[in-house]
């Protein structure tokens, strides 16, 4: 049932984690991190249904949001080095 889905997700998490640990470049890791975020989000949703308390989807939303922020931060860091850099932004952005 849901438990099976959870197990599948768990396996996927494990694989992604292996990539995150092994990944030769930092981008691999960031990619894996992003995927792990998504998988964890799904996991949460499934656990919510598993325990019969789907209200906890708030948490999943939070994961989704933070995932983006985290990934963008990592990227920005590796792209420009500086988190506060406006990049090539022109006015009117």
């Amino acid at each position: 049932m849901f438990a099976a889905a959870a197990l599948a997700l768990l396996a996927a998490l494990g694989l992604a984690l292996a990539r995150a640990i092994g990944g030769p470049t930092v981008f691999d890791r960031a990619l894996a991190a992003n995927s792990i975020g998504t998988l964890a989000l799904l996991m949460l949703a499934v656990i919510g249904f598993l325990t019969g308390r789907p209200e906890f989807l708030d948490l999943a939303i939070l994961y989704g949001l933070l995932n983006v922020v985290g990934t963008v931060a990592v990227l920005k860091f590796f792209r420009f080095g500086d988190l506060g850099d406006p990049g090539e932004a022109e006015g009117g952005g």
Binding site: F2, A5, A8, A12, G14, L15, A18, L42, V46
Partner: peptide, 21 residues
């Protein structure tokens, strides 16, 4: 749900197995 989780596993496998970023 099942196919979704299957895709997740497949994706993760790909993440693991594919060569190159």
């Amino acid at each position: 749900v099942w196919s979704g989780s299957a895709f997740c596993v497949i994706g993760a496998l790909g993440l693991m197995r594919l060569r190159g970023f």
